[in-house]
């Protein structure tokens, strides 16, 4: 994307000081910025307030409400998505930071009629109750199983510790992840 001249000079920014600056030209300052990104394979272009978190952008601008907001301080993991293939907290990123990125959310997995093997394993092992934390667990697990196709229980617990669930006591989730690893290894449903 082409750089625009600096927009929206801030009331708190000392313009004068900046002009003293030397040879290197300053990158622009933004309060709103156009971003372009791919979410679940679909290209989006949007202009966003720079302070809008990525999760708010996904939910409220793109209408992808499968990603949930549980704490907005990076602990609960309900907002976990894949950013360029890696599981990250979308409440700790601003939408502007995702400019040019490839994002996968829970909507990018299976459909109710055709669940992804991971989702199927979650269903089979009663790995969800209220379902609010579930998308975050799925996304954390998806990235994890790509890196660790044959995880130990200890490794499973360790990665799941990055997401909080208040309903299940985790056992169903652990069982589901163990089973999903097997299903994915055997190419089931892939």
């Amino acid at each position: 994307m082409k750089r625009r001249a600096q927009t929206n000079a801030s009331r708190r920014t000392p313009q004068a000081r900046r002009s003293k600056q030397a040879k290197v030209s300053l990158p622009p300052l933004w309060t709103r910025k156009e971003i372009r990104l791919r979410v679940n394979g679909v290209e989006y272009t949007s202009t966003v307030d720079v302070r809008m978190t990525l999760v708010d952008f996904l939910r409220h601008e793109l209408g992808l409400t499968g990603t949930h907001v549980g704490c907005e301080h990076g602990v609960c993991g309900a907002c976990t998505i894949l950013l360029d293939g890696q599981a990250v907290r979308s409440c700790l990123l601003f939408a502007v930071q995702a400019d040019g990125a490839e994002i996968t959310t829970v909507e990018g997995l299976g459909t109710p009629e055709r669940l992804h093997p991971l989702q199927e394993a979650f269903r089979d092992h009663h790995a969800l109750q209220c379902g609010f934390c579930t998308p975050g667990f799925l996304m954390s697990t998806l990235a994890f199983l790509r890196e660790n196709p044959e995880p130990s229980d200890e490794q499973i617990r360790e990665v799941l510790a990055g997401n909080l669930c208040r309903c299940t006591g985790y056992q169903g989730i652990i069982d589901a992840v163990r089973d999903a690893a097997q299903r994915l290894r055997s190419g089931y449903g892939a």
């Binding site: 499968g66 989702q119 379902g131």
Partner: peptide, 9 residues
Amino acid sequence: DPRLLTGRG
């Protein structure tokens, strides 16, 4: 479950 698992809750 199918709806909750696919972000359609």
